[in-house]
Nucleic acid binder design. Structure first.
Lengths: 210, 210, 210, 210
DNA sequence: GATGAATGAGTATTCATTCAT
DNA sequence: GATGAATGAATACTCATTCAT
């Protein structure tokens, strides 16, 4: 592991105020995102990120303090996307007059699809979080935001939801969902995808309906 | 050796038949297990394993072909332990006349305790599996054996268990449990451990009771 | 990198376009050439090459993929030099009106002197070629170029040269010369250098004159 | 290179007086000879020699001080064989009433065939000699013995042989032959074996006939 | 602001040889 | 005499990061 320890004081990281600067930053992020998803964090070296961005390694380090920070940024962006997706889904659901069970099904399927679109990146994030506490915090923060949205959804269904401690219940569900999705991503060719999703949904429905 | 001609001769790995040999092997495994749990696989270098075993690096490589194989061995041993623990727990449960809900509670608590005893090693295994397919296979094999035990337990409760597809249901439960335990291990200081476990158990009970 | 997933990303090798870069490359080559000649390929480690170049090991590997590639480069450079020397010698010979026998004598003496200037390197190359087919190919290619020059010389003497198969004859002569020179280099203190050269020249003269 | 330098004082090497001991020694030598020829000196490790001999590594080191010494022994044995072969060939030749040219042809063909039978071992010896002066001495000694035999042959043809300095002439011929044979061994599939041998023989014939 | 050449600590693995049993 | 477990020095190569130009 290339640890973060022992950083020297690094000089001015470019703050992306100028248009050009923002674009450069994005080029780096996009190249890195692709590479991290394809080859993983460890197998993607910074020089490769630079060359894939069409930039010099020096430029990369002018925009980011280190490789880790690049990943953190990607993690932030990605989490934001997922969050927005969840928020909109919940907005849609609360607008329509649908049952709790239908809502659960819709939400799980939607999030599953979203997960699969970035399955490899999700896998890489999972791996990364296990070795970088900083990343863990970032994800935690976003999960809390997402939890709040889900709480909003549950509030919508009011007393139909029979959980003692909603917040905690959601955490449990959230984590389970994540792991089941990840499992499906890794094994989608060897297992019955639909059946697993269906059982998972059943579990949630029975749980939430009390 | 500096010759280009391929195929290094894998040196003959000692087969631990003699007493001394077995003991040496165990010393390596124990030292490595401790180090992997404390520092992680990547931050544990082979020289450290050797010195912590009180052996030379040469000895380590006389007993294992590489660092990965040491981990695989630890993973095997550890999986066996967990399996045996699960098996005995299920044996105990099926002997007594207890309800399904009680059984779920007992089992989850038991496995959770077992998980916590080796929390850090579990975390390391999780990380390792993500990057080593070989390890993934090892774990899969053991999980299947464990699933079979759990199916045995469910059979014991017969028609009380209302799952459509038992095998798949167990996979879902298994993965969820793993992730929830891991989550608790990582955050045990910041969250309400008991409450989370309780909700998780509730989820399972509602699920299995239909 | 400790991941199992294959294909290390071969780091981008610097293409020496800039002045500084070319100079660095040359420093490495010169240091390595000296070391290879003095201590041999196997006893010259890469760190030594770096330090003797006044560079870091990283720099060495930024300019060459391998220790072997360093040798290949030296071999190429050296072969070119010898080739140019041969070519010029033959040019000189064909300009003057000298006899075949005189030409043989001149050429052998010239090549012998050239060989002796880099005797140790020649020895090392010989050793190296025996274990590296790649190097063998490089040398073969250069020997063919040299053979073509010698054929040119022989053509100059036209029907005075009584060899059935010129190309093959030259190969035989070439290999013999190489070995005799190498023998002399190794044993120059214990044998009568001049006498051996003289006999060798006699052999060639008798052979070529038919 | 695993150098000879820094040998500690080694205890009693078994002197093979007893039958069993001699047999053990031979088992080691035969296994090593095969391995050296197949894989080369560097790629043959001592443990492999031991296991191929059906002996323990300890036994190997009870009979030989070194890996090098094993090779030296093989070199001695092999040189003796070649010597005996040459001697007998020359005996045969001198018995019959054949011409000098016929003798040359017979001898070259005979030695070439002998060389090819052990081509790989010959290549390995060549490589080895380049890095081990000790081996060089061993070979030199045998070459001198062989030279003496050849001188005997030449004496047989008396004044038909027109070499100024017989001893030196033979050295030149000997070295050339060795290199040409080696060249043929390495390239036998890409070149016209017969044509090369024929030219070589022609060269020798013209040389010796003056 | 940008470049990319240079840095150098860090690491898995091999194998001839020893010596306690 | 034999065994084979243990030794440990030695070495090629990577890659995140810096900084002179």
């Amino acid at each position: 592991m290339t640890s973060l320890k022992g950083k020297k004081n690094r000089p001015r990281i470019i703050k992306p105020v100028q248009k050009r600067s923002i674009e450069t930053r994005n080029r780096i992020i996009n190249a890195a995102k692709k590479l991290f998803a394809e080859k993983g964090f460890d197998d993607t070296n910074t020089n490769l990120i630079a060359s894939q961005s069409g930039l010099s390694i020096g430029s990369v380090y002018a925009h980011f303090t280190n490789k880790w920070e690049i990943f953190h940024t990607i993690l932030e962006n990605f989490s934001l996307e997922v969050f927005e997706y969840l928020k909109e889904s919940i907005n849609d659901i609360t607008k329509d007059r649908i049952t709790l069970n239908e809502a659960i099904e819709l939400l799980v399927h939607g999030l599953y699809k979203a997960h699969m679109l970035n399955g490899q990146l999700n896998a890489e994030i999972a791996k990364f979080i296990l070795k970088d506490p900083e990343a863990g915090k970032i994800r935690s923060a976003w999960e809390q935001k997402m939890n709040r949205e889900i709480i909003r959804l549950i509030a919508h269904f009011g007393s139909h939801v029979k959980i003692e401690n909603v917040e905690i219940g959601i955490t449990v569900v959230h984590r389970s969902a994540h792991e089941v999705f990840q499992y499906l991503y890794k094994n989608k060719d060897q297992v019955d995808e639909k059946a697993i999703l269906k059982e998972f949904i059943t579990m949630l429905q029975r749980y939430l309906n009390g």
